[in-house]
Design a protein around this nucleic acid. Structure first.
Lengths: 223, 223
DNA sequence: CCCGTAGCTGAAAAAACGCTGAAAACAGGA
DNA sequence: TCCTGTTTTCAGCGTTTTTTCAGCTACGGG
């Protein structure tokens, strides 16, 4: 779940971000109405938390503009207490809910839950190199019609290789990114996984290979 | 536009009725939870204003009962100020919005406008994937002529799986969306329901399967 | 051509993860 | 209240993933 926070007051913005992150939302935060509008119109968010008083464009303008473009992302407006007029115009502009400052974190999260309850999300993506594709949503490695499921760590390693297809990926970096900096994984762990991946690449009949660069690391190539 | 008001405090009830009538809504008012429930389940209202503290059945019970019967009429809950817990449970129970007492008439009308605006949304009859269909009104899972009733949680889980058929649905997300973010449901709860659903999919003879993606979650697929 | 280092890989052990049947706890309706 | 269907809990089991290890191969420098 992705949340966009549009709030110019630095401290509040940081607080909001933290609260939502704790609830496992992916948060982006911007601090003026123009940026808020530009980000929100991408349509990639599951909800927007929008202050009314903002530099450049007010929260009202932002919602109105979004709705005019048929962007239906739920919007929760933030208003100062005693700005009843704001509340009303906010809802009439097309916001889905509003909340007065200050507020309890629980209230915020409950409201966002209510707003996002009806959402579904669809993101399709894959990384490719030559004739192989790594399907990020299923962890499948595919070549033509043949496919095979990768385990979690295999997937992580393959992802890193595909991320920088032309450059050499040092073992050290693989260890840090896949096993974590703290871990005491040895070089041989990486070698084992490279071996697994080679078998799977072979199995699906790809002409992509993982090439060893002695003393330096690995890179993708073709036979 | 027809509005149902469920409020036991006589003066408040009269005030609400008057406010809404002034806005040209057709208003029915009842004063206990049982009546509120019976009236609301007729489904003939465009919105319900529902107090939490009510004789016979609490507002929570009423919403929950309505939602269980798949009555989607928007519900605005009324709670005393400082009953944050109530607010949260209200939204989690299936209410669409809440408002604290006392409140300004303009706020009430604005909120009702917001709630009734959402009515335009298209309501899906069923969600399908390959040879299975999930009937949203009856909670039945169907494959060809064979069908089986799902329990509420089974239904919720299946709905989420169907919402993103090609992508992996993490357990974490299932817990948050089905059990609620606050809940202390364990991974095993999800596993138990996946197991139930698999049995039912098998029972109706579908070729759809729920595939496990270790460490990541579940997704739908076919044998 | 030989040696030493680096890397590879099969097999097996260890750990993590997930599945499921059964029972208990719970909730709602008659 | 009891009964029924739902949800939670738990323990044991099976599977997959991950780690480990040992023997092997490939490479490059001298």
């Amino acid at each position: 779940m992705r949340i966009l926070i549009v709030e110019d007051e630095k401290r509040l913005c940081a607080a909001l971000t933290q609260i939502m992150r704790e609830q496992k939302y992916a948060v982006d935060a911007v601090c003026d109405g123009e940026d808020g509008y530009q980000y929100a119109r991408s349509g990639e968010y599951d909800a927007v938390i929008l202050d009314v008083m903002l530099p450049k464009r007010s929260g009202f303008e932002v919602v109105k503009a979004l709705r005019r473009e048929k962007i239906a992302t739920p919007v929760l407006m933030l208003t100062a207490r005693d700005e009843l007029e704001s509340k009303i115009s906010g809802l009439d502009c097309g916001a889905d809910d509003y909340m007065t400052k200050p507020f309890a974190p629980e209230e915020l999260t409950a409201r966002i839950r209510a707003l996002t309850r009806r959402q579904g999300e669809v993101v399709l993506e894959e990384m490719t190199y030559e004739d192989v594709a790594l399907e990020l949503n299923s962890c499948d490695l595919r070549c033509g019609a043949k496919r095979i499921r990768l385990s979690f760590k295999e997937f992580e390693v393959m992802k890193l290789l595909l991320a920088t297809p032309s450059t050499i990926l040092p073992k050290e970096q693989l260890i840090v990114k896949v096993w974590g900096a703290e871990s005491d994984a040895a070089d041989n762990n990486v070698e084992a996984y490279i071996s697994f991946l080679r078998k799977k690449l072979f199995y699906i009949g790809s002409r992509v290979t993982i090439q060893t660069v002695r003393k330096l690391g690995y890179k993708l190539g073709t036979e």
